[in-house]
């Protein structure tokens, strides 16, 4: 039932503890939200799970296998794929080639024709087919983010980590992205998403965990989170600081 278990995960940078003793799990087929103020350690958590960083302590078990400290390329091939907060596409390559990269390298033993066919299917699924031959670097932000998601999908993930997929998008684009995320889940792919767009996260996530100063504060359904006192205080505090600062 559980696809990912994280136990007592900790990461220090010099004297700073970015993630401290975080425990959580993700069930197969759910969309889980990860929220928290800036600097709460959300992206660091993604970096640990996806293999960018090696944890200082704790366990990451994916699909029954311990993956903590493995290199990103191995983790990807086990079916755990991520996107980045600041878009990381291959700007010189076309949209097709970007997605093809995922199909070719994301899982083992695929022939070119198979990878090509799969790329075509993913481009259709994400609505990118018309842009297929455009260099990815010349696209708008929303389309670049879409290319990144498409590339991740081509790698055949069981678990997809989406890092602020909706940041910087206008309301119409956010609505499209929300719809895309649900359709991805309907393909049988489990999702963890970091998001600041509350409307999105409250609507499509079944469960949400809240990070603050590198620690997990609480977890629960959107309804529970939106009425949780500590969470409200954290966010109110952040707003007050923002006001005081401006």
């Amino acid at each position: 039932m559980q696809l990912l278990q994280v136990e007592k995960l900790t990461k220090n940078f010099g004297g700073l503890t970015a993630v401290s003793g975080v425990d959580f799990h993700v069930n197969r087929g759910e969309i889980m939200g990860l929220i928290g103020p800036n600097g709460a350690g959300k992206t660091t958590l993604f970096n640990l799970i996806s293999g960018t960083y090696v944890p200082n302590a704790g366990k990451i078990v994916f699909n029954g296998e311990s993956i903590g400290g493995l290199k990103p390329n191995y983790i990807c091939r086990k079916g755990l794929v991520r996107t980045f907060q600041t878009v990381k596409i291959f700007p010189e390559m076309t949209v097709f080639q970007n997605v093809l990269m995922g199909a070719l390298f994301g899982s083992e033993g695929k022939t070119w024709p198979e990878a090509n066919a799969e790329t075509g299917e993913i481009l259709d699924f994400t609505g990118l087919t018309p842009l297929s031959d455009t260099p990815a670097g010349s696209l708008t932000l929303v389309n670049q983010k879409r290319v990144e998601v498409a590339r991740a999908l081509a790698a055949k993930p069981r678990l997809l980590l989406l890092d602020e997929m909706m940041a910087g998008l206008n309301p119409a684009e956010v609505a499209e992205s929300m719809e895309l995320v649900t359709r991805i889940r309907d393909r049988g792919i489990t999702i963890i998403m970091i998001e600041h767009v509350m409307k999105a996260i409250m609507n499509i996530c079944k469960r949400i965990i809240v990070l603050h100063h590198g620690k997990k504060i609480t977890e629960g359904t959107p309804a529970e989170i939106s009425t949780n006192k500590t969470v409200i205080e954290i966010y109110l505090g952040e707003e007050e600081q923002a006001h005081a600062g401006s």
Partner: peptide
């Protein structure tokens, strides 16, 4: 970085 995370 993207290459590594896509399985290269």
């Amino acid at each position: 970085e993207a290459a590594a995370h896509i399985g290269v």
